[in-house]
Amino acid sequence: MRHLLSAADLGRDQAVQVLDVAEQMAATQQREIKKLPTLRGRTVVNLFFEDSTRTRISFEAAAKRLSADVINFTARGSSVSKGESLKDTALTLEAMGADAVVVRHHAPGAPHRLATAGWTRGSVVNAGDGTHEHPTQALLDAFTLRRHLVGGTVPGAATGADLAGQRVVIAGDVLHSRVARSNVLLLHTLGAHVVLVAPPTLLPVGVEAWPCATSYDLDAVLEGAFGEPDAVMMLRVQRERQNAAFFPSAREYSRRYGLDVRRLGMLPRHTIVMHPGPMNRGLEISAAAADSARSTIVEQVSNGVAVRMAVLYLLLSGRKDPATGPVVTGGRTGGADGATRKDRRR
């Protein structure tokens, strides 16, 4: 792997490899000494243009437990408003010798630009780009799903396996969700069946081309309209969306699409409840669901560290790729270089 920009960058075998390495990483985290020497002398920059404490500390913990040097760079604004441009920030980090740049940005595609515009030679990890993707979140969700649904919650028991045949319901604001996009791509790659549930206003035009099913009716889906669900993942819904008429009111949204006590009771015994956080308790998920024994929400957070350790390890430690070779990302190289040298003589 050179970069991790999209969940689509990973083929089935590569995705399974990341999950397997993450199991090994998780095992090391049970030891008294959690720190590994693997990335000693390497520099990982957390470049966050958007506030996200939980994702940043997850990456920070992952890099530090691999003994990498970590630089946290929190930038505000974009090149159109005040502040330094993405390009100049990247050039600065390049001059500091970043081996990997973990980037969170409000603009879809910003990590692609970092990886392909020639501004930096380091590996780029997409830590969430606007409403586009969040591939490490999808990996940690897949890791959690695999442990529970395939490995019987025994650490390492599912090594080598994918998610073939598992049914995952993802409900909520799909339109604005980078988590949903990455999960649909990755879970499909791993053989799972995904059903997206949302009001029509919160599904993107064009969703019918995604490798998943869609429904407007959460009750029907939980009752098994697409088969018995093995996992239900609730997406965060911002209350402010009602101001843009995506739904009439938070109460109506909650009634039609929230995982309330009644719907929690409809779930088969083995079905797990997931949420990428941060939660809006009482809106998309009830306290009963969030705190139930089915809930993997807290576990997802600790799995996030193991998965991010695996990603950084695979990106930076000697390119130990599977036989399929390095990941080739879809971006094309930017061509602005020549243009910037243009003669502006009058």
Partner: peptide, 11 residues
């Protein structure tokens, strides 16, 4: 000018 294109898509 170059700087108005040499950036992320949204900007």
């Amino acid at each position: 000018p170059a700087e108005d294109k040499d950036c992320e898509w949204d900007a």
